[in-house]
């Protein structure tokens, strides 16, 4: 089903996800249009990966809606989700290559499973994709024999194997050297500009984020703190945004929030109780 050029590729409306009484995603709404590169940023544990998992349909929200290519993914059964997933690629944070297969077989896997191409054609595509990420000649190595950054690039080649309309990347440049980061960024730009691929990128790397983004979303505590074009984000008056993009230790974003809460329960609360008991003992004595 072709998507009309102006309708959003991804449409997230009022997405809420709770684990018990902890709200991890708190009422998030946004759209991604064809050819856009959306960068999702935010501190560790702010719900970025959880949000991504809801968009690709591997987690179900507590309430709200997620549409990909105009189809509601939250109510789909496994079979329907599989048919949507054939149209997008995903790069995992660790690369998530199958350790038992070689690099070439990993890239070939989606092609073998989802296309009727001949072995020769598949080999040609694998070579082309590996060349795109600068790894031609590595086909016969096992994932255990290559570095973390290389694994990630093989993961990218695999995500691009079926020429997806939509690419999800979970921290595509962490663990890459600056030159390879630039290569991967340029590849993303080339695909989104030249071939109208849509990209959703979760990243911590601000240089890379500002290089590739057409729009940015910053998350904090499960909700959207700020969103807009790279320029709007760069000039945002919001001190949380400024602290994050400039990487400053001091600012409004609290450190180790959960530990603060923990201390609050462990130490602060019992004190009045102990004090009261002391008073009680003094009185009776």
């Amino acid at each position: 089903m072709p998507t009309p050029a102006d309708s959003p590729v991804i449409e997230v409306v009022d997405l809420i996800r709770k684990f018990g009484d902890r709200t991890v995603i708190n009422d998030i709404s946004f759209n991604v249009r064809r050819g856009e590169t959306l960068v999702i940023m935010g501190g560790s544990g702010c719900g970025k990966s959880t949000l991504l998992r809801h968009i690709i349909g591997s987690m179900k929200p507590t309430s709200g809606s997620v549409k990909i290519f105009g189809q509601e993914i939250t109510t789909m059964n496994e079979h329907e989700i599989a048919s949507v997933r054939r149209r997008f690629g995903m790069l995992f944070q660790s690369g998530a290559l199958l350790a038992s297969l070689t690099v070439g077989e990993n890239v070939a896997l989606p092609l073998l499973q989802h296309t009727d191409n001949s072995v020769d054609e598949i080999e040609e595509i694998v070579e082309e994709k590996l060349q795109m990420v600068g790894l031609s000649g590595f086909e016969d190595l096992k994932p255990a024999e290559i570095s973390g950054g290389m694994k990630k690039r093989v993961g990218l080649a695999r995500a691009l194997a079926l020429d997806p309309e939509l690419l999800f990347s979970d921290e595509p440049t962490s663990g890459l050297d600056p030159i390879m980061t630039a290569v991967v960024d340029q590849l993303t730009l080339k695909l989104t500009h030249g071939e109208h691929m849509t990209a959703v990128v979760v990243t911590h790397d601000m240089t890379s984020a500002f290089r590739i983004a057409t729009r940015m979303i910053m998350l904090g505590h499960g909700s959207i703190v700020a969103q807009g074009t790279p320029d709007e984000i760069r000039n945002s008056p919001n001190p949380e945004v400024q602290q994050f993009i400039n990487g400053e230790a001091d600012g409004p974003i609290p450190l180790n929030l959960s530990q603060d809460e923990h201390e609050h329960h462990q130490h602060v609360k019992p004190r009045p109780f102990i004090a009261a008991r002391h008073r009680f003992h003094r009185k009776t004595a």
Binding site: I81, A82, R85, M90, F92, A96, L98, A99, P110
Partner: peptide
């Protein structure tokens, strides 16, 4: 188990491979 822990199973699912 190792495949599950290293996200390989999830990667298969996302590639629409059961």
């Amino acid at each position: 188990g190792t495949m599950k822990v290293s996200e390989e199973i999830e990667a298969l699912e996302v590639m629409a491979i059961n």
